[in-house]
Design a binder for these strands. Structure first.
Length: 163
DNA sequence: AACATAGACAACCGCCAGTCA
DNA sequence: GTGACTGGCGGTTGTCTATGT
């Protein structure tokens, strides 16, 4: 069928955001709210894709973000939530005020994986690493079945979204 | 001092699900 | 009921910095 691209790629900037772009985006959102991401870049005078603006705002520019190191309590909460939810980063982020899904995902993939491995725990199954051979296929997290969702495992869409 | 490697994190890509005409 | 559009998500990549040799 061929989806239409989310934006005019030929006329959009890519890569790292400049300070000026950040300022434009923040100023626009403070004045008009988040609104429609597709039209926002044009309205704000940014040569960026709407998705890119959304990501930049959510992951970096939002005023309620708590930046800096994760606390021990946050570490433990992430491990606990990951063992329950798997790679549902947005859900985990919803339980950590001021943290974003991207931040948690990066933190997991760099720090936490190694931390768990050093404890002898497999980061994807939360089982002892020497206990892995058995049914490792069937216990993979991140692949939540429709049945599981219907049965009450919270879905990420439009739920528990941090503002 | 120069280079190589690893670590950290920002940003992009493709897919999926919800909404609406 | 159907298809297009949009927002949102998770996986992956790219780039910059720190550390080791």
């Amino acid at each position: 069928m061929g989806r239409s691209p989310c934006c005019e790629k030929a006329h959009t900037n890519k890569g790292a955001w400049t300070k000026e772009e950040d300022e434009r985006l923040v100023a626009y959102i403070q004045a008009h709210g988040e609104g429609c991401w597709r039209t926002l870049p044009k309205a704000a005078g940014l040569l960026r894709c709407g998705k890119s603006c959304r990501l930049r705002w959510i992951n970096y520019l939002r005023p309620d973000l708590k930046r800096g190191n994760f606390t021990v309590e946050e570490d433990e909460l992430i491990i606990e939530q990951h063992s329950l939810l798997g790679n549902k980063w947005s859900l985990i982020a919803g339980r950590l005020p001021g943290r974003t899904d991207n931040e948690i995902k990066n933190y997991w993939n760099t720090h936490m994986r190694r931390k768990l491995l050093s404890r002898g725990i497999d980061p994807s199954t939360h089982r002892p690493t020497n206990d892995l051979a058995v049914d490792s296929m069937s216990t993979s997290f991140g692949a939540v079945s429709k049945e599981e969702k219907i049965a009450g495992v919270p879905t990420c869409k439009h739920q528990e979204k941090p503002i």
